[in-house]
Amino acid sequence: MAPDCTPFERQLIEGCRQGSPQYQEMFYKHFYGFTMAIALRYHPARQEAGSVVNDSFMKVFARIDRYAFEETFKGWLRRIVVNTALDHYRKHVKHTQTVEYDQADSQSVEVENAVISQLTAEDILTLLQHLPDQYRMVFNLYEIEGYSHEEIAGQLNLSVSSSRVYLVRAKEKLARLVKSYFPNHNERFYS
């Protein structure tokens, strides 16, 4: 049994393997929150994220037979969602603006530690929403999913150096965004 699977989740997986629509519905509703949270990190627009989620579940239901309970189920599911999000990004990459290096400001920003620790998941999603698409993609893939720059370059059709630069710029921009959105955490949390 996969280490992260509860008996209920295992039952859902088995039901989906048999193609039962009822189990598929339960599976969808059970893992919806998890998959949507991942999709929103890559595509902050709710509709686009929903589309990624639905496409991911399509793939999951079609390939659930291949899941062998050897790795964590959520890890397997996460990989499918991330790959689907990347597919969507590549599909729409023609419409996205290429970020110029000189647009970014390399000035250092000081953010209070207390502000950082008080950021909620919703806050972080809002901050990510304000990053340019390429910055957001590179940041997510490198910092959260653990991809290497070579892998990111391959996935996003970038050079490795571009990937590195985008990551640095993304972090700087995030810090600036935190500073601009939450200049004083006391105002936010204690007012």
Partner: peptide, 24 residues
């Protein structure tokens, strides 16, 4: 600062789940 921010983001969004939206 970047490291602290990144660690916090990784930790927070890693366990975050969105509530189910009726109609999905």
């Amino acid at each position: 600062i970047h490291k602290r921010l990144t660690d916090h983001i990784r930790k927070t969004v890693g366990r975050y789940e969105v509530p189910y939206e009726p109609g999905s």
